[in-house]
Design a protein around this nucleic acid. Structure first.
Length: 555
RNA sequence: GGGCUUGUGGCCUAGUCUGGAUAAGGCACCGUCCUUCUAAGUCGGUGAUCGUGGGUCCGAAUCCCACCAAGCCCGCCA
């Protein structure tokens, strides 16, 4: 439920009074420079009877709407320009009375956002962090929309990879103090060892022990997973990614939930040499139990989803595109075989590759989050010092720039597309980057500070709406679009819509900044522009927070 | 081989779902603007047969078909 006045809808309503067949999609914010809002009439020109007559009535009615400044009809388009003063007041009133624009959307559904869930077999690298950034931004987006959101990390502490990690330690570092470096070394060695042996038999034996409920083994492996996880959580923390809940996969084995999955699916289960599988149409036979009785990743993940469905109305899972089929299978099992009707959405993202190929912890070809974060921090620090010298908040500001840049880099490209990680791009602070957005905020704040110093801060109440520059109106309209963008982003689970919006918004601001002076202008104009600045900052902060961009006073 | 996804100036991207007015930005390159609110900025310029070929339509980057190229998936791995 949107608590703001939807001007597109108001225009649609007027137009439909005379043309009830009008498609709502023909009333849009204009992408070209013809007008602010446009109604595409081309398709009705020839098909609608007495078109000219109706067109005139539509135009007359729309022109009378309070927020419409001017209107003309040109080659099949009704071009509408809005009254910036009217919209500015609407935005201001919302922000002043409720603190934000729009104040709230309010959807009481309980939502779970599962993301990251990376195997604790090494430090988090730039490929995996895309998952975290997307997931965290989606959770913030959903919260902003009014959902009750919980973020979840599903910790895989019981699969083959974890058992291998454990075995690597046992075989090559037994007795040594367990650190992530030691574990990582053992992990790499164990895979070489498997290759030489030509068998992973030792892992299989351990896994059987594990599934039979060998408590000592389970807790030792969980301990190892926890050590690796602590490191990952530390990196997530650097990027302001906070998880509400960690669920360990082993819990489902220990509590017998995994076994219950098999029971729940018993009507659909088929047997092959003692192994159990189910048929998924258009996919293939999917095994949920091995011949030796042990469970599979999917089995445990079903148990996890049954748990999530018992707690949440809506579950969102962020996964790499290589898991697309897994998502399809999970969806089919939960809804078609187990009969749940909770909503389940998978968000898939393209891989982050290096120019030289894939990132792999095991092969040592990954770029870790820490490396990138540290370099960004360092560069940001240089830039800040270059401008302001060594000050008290250099640390904080450089950190904010680093976090913002890294998160923005991960979100600026459409999530479905792969990213080729390049240092030069990641470390760029010019053009379409987080610093550009942040910079617009500091410039706005800087003007307000000057206004304050001059003792004119009360001017905001005094707004002269006549003679507004087109750059002002254009910025105000962009600000006004914020609720539409949030709604779009929520409906399509696309936080990148917000980063795109932030870029558009700050570009509009920059143009305004270059064209319209605030200091030294006559009272009514200064008041109007101060109002624009205040609300611009408010909306920019609001949207920035969703995607994890920080706003600073000086940079 | 089957399935899914992607292909837009030298490079990176937006737009594709829901077809419409001269395809929108950034990087790089060339040139411009700091005695006016932060030059991480501005303004101007060079540069695109929107992978190829058909089709539907008054109209296609967008929809349909075929082909080409790249990526991912097709385990009793996770």
């Amino acid at each position: 439920m949107l608590l703001f006045q939807d001007i597109l809808d108001l225009i649609r309503a007027e137009a439909r009074k005379h043309l009830n067949t009008l498609d709502e999609r023909d009333v849009i914010f204009d992408q070209t420079e013809h007008a602010h809002i446009t109604i595409r009439m081309i398709k009705y020109e020839k098909t609608v009877e007495r078109f000219e007559e109706k067109l005139k009535m539509i135009c007359d009615d729309i022109e009378n709407l309070p927020f419409v400044a001017s209107l003309n009809y040109d080659r099949g388009y009704i071009n509408i320009n809005v009254d910036g003063g009217y919209l500015l007041r609407a935005i201001r009133d919302s922000v002043e009375t409720t603190g934000s624009f729009p104040d709230s959307f309010q959807d009481p559904e309980r939502v779970s956002v599962e993301h990251t869930s990376t195997n604790p077999t090494g430090p988090i690298h730039m490929g995996r962090i895309r998952n975290s950034v997307i997931g965290d931004s989606i959770s913030r987006l959903m919260k902003r929309y009014g959902y009750r959101v919980v973020t979840q990390y599903y910790v895989n502490d019981s699969g083959k990879q974890m058992v291998s990690l454990y075995l690597g330690y046992e075989k090559f570092h037994k007795g040594e103090k367990i650190t992530k470096e030691i574990l990582l070394d053992g992990y790499r060695k164990i895979y070489d060892y498997f290759e030489k042996q030509g068998t992973e038999g030792e892992v299989e034996t351990l896994m059987e022990r594990y599934e039979r409920g060998d408590h000592k083994l389970i807790s030792e492996i969980k301990n190892i997973a926890q050590i690796m996880l602590d490191d990952i959580v530390g990196d997530l923390d650097l990027l302001d990614v906070k998880m509400d809940e960690y669920t360990f996969e082993s819990e489902f084995i220990v509590t017998g939930e995994t076994e219950k999955v098999v029971e729940s699916l018993s009507d659909h289960i088929q047997d092959e040499d003692g192994a159990k599988f189910i048929e998924i149409p258009n996919v293939r036979n999917i095994f949920i139990k091995r011949k030796n009785g042990t469970s599979l990743y999917l089995t445990r993940d079903i148990a996890y989803h049954m748990y999530k469905f018992s707690q949440y109305d809506k579950c969102i899972v962020v996964l790499g595109e290589d898991h697309k089929e897994h998502g399809k299978i999970m969806d089919y099992i939960m809804h078609n075989l187990l009969g749940y009707n909770n909503s389940l959405d998978f968000v898939f993202y393209g891989m982050v590759n290096l120019e030289s190929g894939k990132m792999s912890t095991r092969k040592g070809t990954s770029v870790t989050v820490k490396e990138v974060y540290n370099k960004l921090n360092e560069k940001a620090r240089e830039e800040v010092i270059k401008r302001y010298g060594q000050g008290d908040d250099v640390d904080r500001v450089s950190r904010d720039i680093a976090v913002s840049s890294l998160r923005f880099y991960m979100l600026k490209i459409n999530m479905g597309k792969p990213i080729t990680f390049r240092w030069e791009d990641a470390l760029d602070f010019n053009g379409e980057t987080a610093p550009f957005i942040m910079y617009s905020y500091t410039r706005a704040g800087s003007i307000l500070e000057k206004v304050d110093e001059a003792g004119n801060s009360n001017e905001a109440g005094n707004i002269k709406v006549d003679g507004m520059e087109k750059e002002e109106t254009s910025l105000i309209l962009e600000m006004y679009k914020y609720p539409y963008k949030i709604t779009d982003a929520v409906k399509s689970l696309r936080p990148d819509i917000i980063t795109g919006y932030l870029l558009e918004l700050s570009k509009k601001f920059t143009t305004f900044y270059e064209t319209c002076k605030v200091m030294g202008e006559e009272s009514g104009i200064q008041g109007r522009r101060v109002t624009i600045l205040k609300n611009y900052m408010s909306i920019l902060e609001d949207a920035s927070y969703i995607v994890g961009i920080k706003n600073v006073k000086k940079m």
